[in-house]
């Protein structure tokens, strides 16, 4: 049975190849401004995003406002992955069966030069991460990008200095911080629920702004939640993958 299956494994491959290449000719021509994808739903995003959501970056406008529910799901996916890694590898307390600093980080990576350079770099990386989050509304950027950059800075500390002297963020804390990030997101949505608007409708937020500005504040708060979750979970996954297990 197993051998038979392996022998016919190329069949689905060839079938997929045939239909993929065949269908390419009938798709709308690439870069055609009159293709359905460019004329049906998206024009509103382009033409009214600035006015309706206060974000001149339309990707952020769609991400954090028009389709904010998708982005909530996406943030939850990250948190789920963090929790999943925790459950699979069961790494919780390095204190209990105590992998030492060496075991936790088995490869010698640091040296004086690397150490000195990273000390110079890391504050700027974190600053840049915050800039990317805050300016996500007017330039490329946003919570995910900023979170990934910030997590990179923390992981750099881990790589260069080993775990013990670095930022002491144990998986127990990072998973809690990740949950707080998503809670900030759902919390923003729930506030508008209490002001008789729909979930994630930022126009219900009790802030002294109007129209686009109010919605901009809402999406900024949501992006902050995303930033927190992404930073925490990326560090969490890195830690779990490099640590010994609880069992």
């Amino acid at each position: 049975m197993q051998q038979l299956l392996q022998r016919i494994a190329w069949l689905p491959f060839v079938a997929a190849a045939a239909i993929l290449f065949y269908a390419a000719r009938d798709l709308p021509t690439m870069a055609d401004p009159n293709a359905p994808a460019s004329t049906h739903v998206s024009p509103r995003y382009i033409e009214s995003a600035l006015e309706e959501t206060g974000a001149s970056n339309m990707v952020t406008a769609v991400l954090a406002d028009y389709r904010a529910y998708d982005t909530l799901g996406e943030t939850v996916v990250i948190l789920t992955a963090g929790l999943a890694c925790l459950l699979v590898l069961g790494a919780f307390t390095p204190a209990r069966s105590g992998p030492t600093e060496k075991e936790a980080m088995p490869y010698e990576f640091g040296s004086d030069i690397v150490d000195a350079t990273s000390r110079l770099l890391i504050p700027f990386i974190i600053l840049f991460a915050l800039y990317v989050v805050v300016h996500g509304h007017t330039s490329p950027g946003g919570g995910f990008q900023g979170g990934a950059i910030c997590a990179a800075a923390i992981i750099l500390v881990r790589l260069v200095r080993g775990r013990a002297p670095g930022l002491k963020l144990l998986p127990t804390y990072t998973v809690a911080i990740g949950s707080i990030g998503v809670l900030v997101y759902t919390g923003t949505g729930l506030v508008s629920l209490f002001f008789e608007k729909n979930f994630l409708d930022y126009s219900g937020l009790p802030l002294p702004f109007h129209g686009g500005h109010l919605r901009e504040m809402g999406s900024l708060s949501v992006e902050t939640g995303v930033f927190i979750t992404v930073t925490a979970v990326m560090v969490l996954i890195f830690d779990v993958l490099t640590m010994g297990s609880e069992e």
Binding site: P33, A37, S38, T39, V41, S42, P43, Y45, I46, E47, A49, L50, M58, V59, A61, V62, L63, R67, D70
Partner: peptide, 13 residues
């Protein structure tokens, strides 16, 4: 802004 002048943001999102 006119839709013709900017690429479609939806697929990027």
């Amino acid at each position: 802004p006119i839709a013709r002048n900017y690429i479609n943001p939806l697929p990027h999102t």
